[in-house]
Each structure stands twice: as structure tokens, then as C-alpha cells.
């Protein structure tokens, strides 16, 4: 059994797991999709790019892309720059 699997435990009938969001650990439920996480974070999905394990996720796939334990997720957007 891997260390990652050992980190699973049950709460409210949902499996809890951990992803890395913008370089920091983030705990989520295992049924969570990209769209649900964006909503929870209060990030408008039209203003960001989602990169999951170095692959860009297209906006029309946010609702169907489920997050997996130990995923590396980057939420990127434009800021002022020269």
C-alpha cells in the first residue's frame, strides 16, 4: 500500500485527498472536478488557465475532469507585466 493511499480517510461519506495547488497542499474531496474546485475557490473560470500535471485543461472539460490524489494543479492568469 502506497503512502498516498494511506493518507485516504473517510469523512461525510467522501474520500478526502490531497492535491498540490499552485505549489501548496490542498485538501479536497475525491469526487471533486476542476469546475467544483474553481467554484469553491471563488475563481471565475473565464479568467484563468488550468494546468493539471503539466497538461492544459480546456474550459469545456472543467466539469468532467475529476481531480486525483497527488495531482499537481496550477491556476494561472494574466497580471500586469512588461
Amino acid at each position: 500500500m502506497t503512502v498516498n493511499r494511506l493518507r485516504f480517510f473517510f469523512s461525510n461519506n467522501h474520500c478526502i485527498m490531497q492535491i498540490h495547488l499552485n505549489g501548496s497542499p490542498k485538501t479536497i474531496t475525491n469526487s471533486m472536478t476542476v469546475a467544483m474546485l474553481l467554484q469553491e475557490l471563488g475563481v471565475p473560470s473565464t479568467s484563468v488557465v488550468v494546468e493539471l500535471n503539466k497538461t492544459i485543461i480546456q474550459p469545456d472539460s472543467y466539469a468532467t475532469t475529476s481531480l486525483q490524489d497527488n495531482d499537481q494543479m496550477e491556476l494561472i492568469r494574466f497580471v500586469g507585466g512588461g
Partner: peptide, 19 residues
């Protein structure tokens, strides 16, 4: 105009230069 890409500041999730 030029812009840069950075990680979203999760403390200010609605802060968006595009608007």
C-alpha cells in the same frame, strides 16, 4: 500592451487585469 502570467493569488481570486 504586454501582460505577464502568474499563479492566481488565492487570497484575491477575482483580481483580474483582463477586465
Amino acid at each position: 500592451v504586454t501582460v505577464a502570467l502568474r499563479r492566481v493569488d488565492l487570497e484575491n481570486p477575482e483580481d483580474d487585469i483582463m477586465s
